[in-house]
Amino acid sequence: MKSIIADLDLQPDAALTPIRVVLSHTSHPGNIGATARAMKNMGLNQLVLVNPRHFPDDEATSRASGAVDVLEQAQVVDSLQAGLQGATVVAALTSRRRELGPELVDAREAAQRLTVASQRGETVALVFGNETNGLSIDELQQCNLLVTIPTNPHYSSLNLAQAVQVLTYECRMAVNRSLANVEEHHPLASHEAVEQFYQHLEAALIDIGFLNPKHPKRLMPRLRRLFGRKQLEKEEVDILRGIVRAMREGRGSDGLEQ
């Protein structure tokens, strides 16, 4: 089935652009360029660099590969506090749980929270530390959510740009799911409509000889359980009743009109 997101034009990007990616004290310019590419792939464009060792830099431009516009509009600041100015939801990537630190969640849970906040108009920031040492304790204390990426416990090292790609991908997927849920929402069938369907179905099963009303056993309860596993939509009940009506007409019955 064609993805409904393909018909949403730039809505996912519009929902993601408020999310700010902050790189603190990045050592390698190639990682800055690769981060810009990862961001643009997923529809983010706000990049903030806190005291990068080398920037601007030809290697960063080369590694950006089509995302040079993200680099060109990147903001360079001298402290994380400046990079987080105006942000209300700040999530920091870390590989370790910190005592007395902010709540620690995995990347998928964090992305869900961050995108919900951004869609509500909050200013959201994703913070990534230095390639070697990560974020300092002081930097972590400026954040209100810690994020971890579940990895192989025997080899958990992730390149900086890879980590950015994982988190920005999860953010995009979270937005896509929320947009799809809105677009794909259909009214659920009422209790009365579902009960009428069961009555209609039971009459049809008797008509075709599949259900013996003198010895019904537990056929209808089992069918109720079968259909009850999913909340039936109004349109689905209409389809099912159409099928049942055709079954009864095939047996010469006028069907149950309700």
Rank of each mutant, 00 (worst) to 15 (best):
V68W: 13
Q141H: 05
R218Q: 14
K214Q: 12
R251H: 14
E184H: 03
V127H: 05
H191R: 14
L240D: 03
D9S: 08
Q81T: 12
D254G: 12
V105F: 09
L135P: 02
R120M: 11
A38V: 07
T88W: 00
L84V: 06
P102C: 05
R245Q: 15
E249A: 06
L240Y: 09
A189H: 08
L223R: 01
R229P: 10
L140D: 03
N51T: 14
R53K: 14
R224F: 07
S24N: 07
M247F: 04
A38T: 08
A180M: 13
M42W: 11
A203G: 02
F55L: 08
G33V: 03
N176G: 01
L47I: 10
L146S: 08
I137W: 07
I149D: 03
H154D: 15
A91I: 06
N144C: 14
V194G: 05
D138S: 15
H154T: 09
P216S: 04
A91S: 11
A174N: 01
D69V: 02
M173Q: 14
S3M: 07
M173K: 00
F210D: 09
R20D: 08
T151A: 14
P102D: 10
L126V: 07
A163N: 06
N144W: 10
V50M: 08
Q46L: 12
R172H: 07
S27T: 10
L44N: 05
P187D: 14
L201P: 01
I19N: 02
D238P: 00
H186E: 14
G252E: 03
S3Y: 03
K214L: 12
D238K: 14
F55S: 06
L10D: 15
Q258I: 15
F128V: 04
A67R: 03
R20S: 11
R97M: 13
T35P: 05
A203C: 12
R53G: 00
H54S: 08
V116L: 13
V166P: 05
L232Y: 04
P102G: 09
A246K: 09
A92I: 01
V22D: 03
Q258L: 08
A82L: 11
A117Y: 04
K217T: 05
I19W: 05
L232G: 10
R120V: 03
E122T: 00
S157Y: 11
A38K: 05
R224S: 04
